[in-house]
Design a protein around this nucleic acid. Structure first.
Length: 463
RNA sequence: GGCGGCGUGGCCGAGCGGUUAGGCAGGGGCCUGCAAAGCCCCGUACUCCGGUUCGAAUCCGGACGCCGCCUCCA
């Protein structure tokens, strides 16, 4: 049984599925107005790991994640750069998918775009107006949050106390500062669509309700996103579903922040680092390992030091892959039924990892377990119990693969010069001519190779 | 003001009543011609002050420090 923290109930509970064996999940995606930042990298990795784990446990997953392609910041940027909103959105969506591919994040089964769901949104807003849970002001249509009895469920506080803390609102036509825009009336030269309640464009909170219900149906299983979406975004999605009398998410799950020093990294603070930059400078797997080494609900600190730390740890994993010549797993959708016959040496490891993962995706404990097993596998091999060591190494590889982390034995083409140097060095070593052997090693190192002495002689690889 | 979270060894980061977390870095050793890789051993941490308990990093109370949400944000 998989257990997961549910924000709506503020407790870890059994994942209760609409249909046994199938998980429907909706993950709030990006607004494509800029390069993806580290926070985007974290949430996509966290929910990618969840998805892969569910699959690994034999569940069939329907994963939906949206692209918000109509929004204030896109308009602002288009204006500033004198080009169309469509162009801006297309550019950054391309950047988005490029980064996701490099991170090894499996693409969603569906990635709906807000602009393709305008009619459905208009229909929903019209029904709210009809039923008087929304009202028209001079700048658009607003949702009246007081019509939803348990508004504030996700925020963990009642409407009155949320209202008490709300900042002074510039729009005094709103009945409550918490009321949110369903529809923004068109301004000159902005993208807009016709509607019975006026030409305009949708507010942000409506698209996800329409797309989640449209693609996953009522009473879908899991709604995920960053902690900053808990309130007001997810609260407002919920409110609309309630108002529409449609069963919404059974579970709500939120991942923690990426921190920069002591502060949350965010667009508004302007302290964000682009994911694209990170991926150019480092092995993308280092970020995945970093994410796996802390719990998804905890804040993580991403810095050059923590990334370097993860890269070195990764080095040990890759060394295992080299030692046992392990196959590359996890790169694409890696599925391995839990019924796979696990060798005696690895069954216990498998069971412990499964127990940790199924308990609210405790990846840090799972990873710790796998690193311990890594030492055991190496020790066994050192002691000559090679077959047992290999089976354990294969289990480690599979379990990391299940989390989307691919261990790389590394492949490279030996050039003629390197090949010749290796042969010469082996000959020198055989003749116990250490001076020549060391000189030849220096030459290989100078040519960019890492040189190790294996049981069969000189082994070289690229860093 | 309301709500929520955090403070762990050099760094990152788990644990959430009794047992070694794990990684990285560092020290010592084994192996090796040397080096690398690998293995073994080592640091003996829990912001502070009280309390509960046979026993607390873990529960309760208080203090201090920090962060987040209540506004767009993953």
């Amino acid at each position: 049984m998989i257990r997961l923290y549910d924000t709506a109930r503020a407790e870890v509970r059994d994942l209760s599925l609409r249909r046994p064996g199938r998980v429907s999940m909706y993950v709030c995606g990006p607004t494509v107005d800029n390069l993806p930042h580290l926070g985007h990298g974290r949430f996509t990795l966290v929910w990618d790991v969840a998805r892969r784990w569910f699959t690994f446990q034999g569940l069939s997953v329907h994963y939906v994640s949206n692209i918000t392609d109509v929004e204030d910041k896109i308009i602002t940027r288009a204006r500033r750069e004198s080009r169309s909103e469509t162009e801006v959105a297309a550019q950054f969506e391309a950047e988005w998918w490029d980064a996701m591919d490099r991170l090894g994040v499996i693409r969603p089964d569906d990635s709906p775009h807000a602009t393709r769901y305008i009619p459905e949104m208009i229909e929903l807003i019209a029904s709210f107006l009809e039923r008087d849970v929304a009202y028209v002001t001079s700048d658009g249509v607003y949702f009246d949050v007081s019509t939803v009895p348990d508004y504030g469920l996700l925020a963990g506080q009642p409407l009155e106390s949320l209202r008490a803390g709300a900042r002074v609102e510039e729009n005094n036509e709103k009945r409550s500062p918490l009321d949110f825009a369903l529809w923004k009336n068109a301004k000159p030269d902005e993208p807009s669509w016709p509607a019975s309640f006026g030409e305009g464009r949708p507010g942000w909170h409506t698209e996800c309700v329409v797309m989640a219900l449209g693609l996953l149906g009522e009473d879908f299983d899991l709604h995920c996103g960053g902690l900053d979406l808990k309130f007001p975004h997810h609260e407002n999605e919920r409110a609309q579903a309630e108002a529409a009398h449609r069963a919404f998410a059974r579970h709500w799950a939120h991942n923690g922040w990426v921190m920069v020093g002591d502060d949350k990294m965010s667009k508004s603070l302007g302290n964000f680092t682009s994911l694209t930059d990170l991926l150019e400078k480092t092995d993308p797997r280092a970020y995945r390992l970093l994410v796996l080494r802390s719990h998804y609900r905890s804040p993580i600190e991403i810095s050059p030091a923590t990334i370097a730390d993860a890269e070195r740890a990764l080095g040990r994993l890759d060394a295992l892959a080299r030692r046992f010549d392990l196959p590359e797993l996890g790169g694409e959708r890696f599925e391995l039924a839990s019924s796979q016959p696990w060798a005696e040496e690895s069954l216990e490891l498998y069971e412990r990892v499964v127990a940790f993962m199924n308990d609210d995706l405790n990846t840090p404990l799972a990873v710790a377990e796998l690193f311990e097993a890594l030492s055991v596998a190496n020790a066994s091999a050192d002691e000559g119990r090679v077959a047992a060591a290999r089976r354990l190494a294969e289990a480690i590889n599979s379990l990391f693969g299940a989390m989307g982390l691919t261990l790389l034995a590394g492949s490279y083409v030996l050039d003629e010069v390197a090949e010749k140097l290796v042969l010469e060095r082996d000959a020198a070593r055989l003749a116990r001519n250490w001076a020549d052997a060391d000189r030849l090693r220096d030459e290989l190192v100078a040519r960019g190779w890492i040189v190790e002495d294996g049981a069969l002689g000189t082994v070289i690889r690229r860093p």
